[in-house]
Simulated assay, not measured.
Amino acid sequence: MTRRQLTDTQRKLIEPFLPIGEYGPYPERLREQFEGVIWRFRTSSQWREMPGEFGPWPTVYGRFRVWRDAGVFTALLEGVIAEAARQGQTDLSLVSVDSTTARAHHDAAGMCIGKEAMDALEEAAADQERARQKGAARQDGTDRTDVTTPSGKSGGASGDGASSV
């Protein structure tokens, strides 16, 4: 017995948008292969871990690539949204597009930086912090320009470490 990813009602809704003749296999294998693609993305598994009931994983992966390149999934999404709109069941409050980029620190990625480059980066960060604090002092109405850097050096505008308040 195949693990069904879609109910028969869901299947009837999306069937008109699936590529049965142009890009697809015989219709009796189309459902298993399409559900194999759904299984892969629902489980976040590797293609090689796909159960055999969806067909051989290289075949399902090949169908996915053909469908992806042909724009089948984009057409399917647009078609389902259009059909839901026709039926008055569109709820776009559930749609979320996230373009957040999360980057790891260079040490987490295994990047090796020489001492000179690290010193230059730390100095640039200290300069940026001094500029930020100088701007904040101007907004506060104070003219405090003496800022201690992370290395412990004084970075005042006069250079002598004296603070003018």
Rank of each mutant, 00 (worst) to 15 (best):
T2I: 12
P25A: 08
A162P: 00
K134Q: 08
P58H: 10
W39R: 03
A82M: 02
R68D: 15
T142P: 00
E28V: 04
I20V: 15
S158D: 12
G24H: 06
G88Q: 07
K115T: 08
G24T: 06
L6A: 01
M50L: 15
I20E: 08
D127N: 14
S44R: 15
T90K: 10
E15H: 12
E28P: 06
G55A: 02
R31N: 09
C112I: 00
G36A: 03
L30W: 01
T142N: 11
I38G: 01
P56N: 15
R11A: 15
D143E: 14
W57M: 03
Y61T: 04
I14N: 06
R63Q: 08
K153R: 15
Q128F: 12
I81M: 11
E83L: 01
R130F: 01
E35P: 01
V60S: 00
V66Y: 01
F17N: 03
D127P: 05
A82K: 07
G21Q: 13
G88R: 05
F34P: 01
L6V: 10
R42Y: 13
S164E: 13
E35K: 05
V165P: 11
I14G: 10
M111F: 13
V72T: 09
T148D: 02
Q5K: 07
T90E: 08
G135F: 08
P150D: 10
S154C: 02
V60Y: 05
